[in-house]
Nucleic acid binder design. Sequence first.
DNA 1: CGAAATTATTTTAAGCCTAAAATGTTTTTA
DNA 2: TAAAAACATTTTAGGCTTAAAATAATTTCG
Lengths: 178, 178
Amino acid sequence: METPSSSLILDRETKASERPGDHKDELRLWLRMLTCSTLIETEIRNRLREEFKTTLPRFDLMAQLDKSVVGMTVGEVSQRLMVSNGNVTAVVAGLVTDGLVDKRSAPQDRRVQILTLTAQGRKAFKLMAERHEDWIAELFAGLDQPAIAQLFRLLGETKTSLHRAIAGRADEAAKGDA
Amino acid sequence: METPSSSLILDRETKASERPGDHKDELRLWLRMLTCSTLIETEIRNRLREEFKTTLPRFDLMAQLDKSVVGMTVGEVSQRLMVSNGNVTAVVAGLVTDGLVDKRSAPQDRRVQILTLTAQGRKAFKLMAERHEDWIAELFAGLDQPAIAQLFRLLGETKTSLHRAIAGRADEAAKGDA
DNA sequence: CGAAATTATTTTAAGCCTAAAATGTTTTTA
DNA sequence: TAAAAACATTTTAGGCTTAAAATAATTTCG
């Protein structure tokens, strides 16, 4: 269905500089990346629901808390998960109701809410995390180790590019405000 | 912050086969891919809102219709966008209200709704699509052509792996039903 | 032919998500 | 110190999203 090589492989006669306004390759790259992400996300969502009767946002939030020993604030979690504060508030509310997460004001700064996994939450997460890791491995089973390593490296470069582009644009906007 | 090479590069003493249950590399790969996708998606969402007062689901839906000459059914769009039918119904409703999309029953099969862009919708999309392509190119500006081509190829392999794993699991389930 | 199965879409109920406004708390500064 | 600014979180209003049930139309097959 797709024929990437026809437009991605440039021979000597067809240099990028000779097609000034053409950014189709980047667009195709993005659409393919989005397809992969969506396929994985949907599949993980389905399996979490079927096997653990839970949702991906809940799992992701618990995963963050599991990594932390002393607990995390709402703001820290929202930054890590790249979602809004209000969203964290809502998802946490559900997890607290179910006894999986504990939430309490920090004694020295009452603006801050410290979130931690309860013993039950930690146990439940451990079970899910093992299965989750297997699922991901299963989904990537068609790639060998070198391919995985290379993809990881290229996505690292991509991340750097994205951060630069996004930060650069934020700077532009700030300059306009001043 | 991240040190991929420490776990991704395996020397002769540390073969993958000697760590049977370890799928950490795949997990790290997935988390990095998700980070990239989320960064891009959030940025595009923000720019669509700021510059065109619209949303990504609306843009994506219009993009599908723009590619089609004769129009598409609700089912076709939902399959292409990998979202539920009900979702398409809702987003289309908004676009119809705004005069960007036309919706009419197919004359030969009245179950089917044919969706097309209106002239206004096509014009509005053209403007947005040009900007969108520029934004994507800007976000990937840190990657050179070979990196883009290689990433595209590896994501193609990933897509194949995903489809195989997901289809394989669906077959298992079907076998269980029989 | 007509009942049953299939197909396409919409509706419903519930949860996720955001931006922006509101609330409560702490820090800065005049 | 008191007002102002900054900060952390929650609330609000609205849109997106899903799965599952409901609706409506067509096709299959007994």
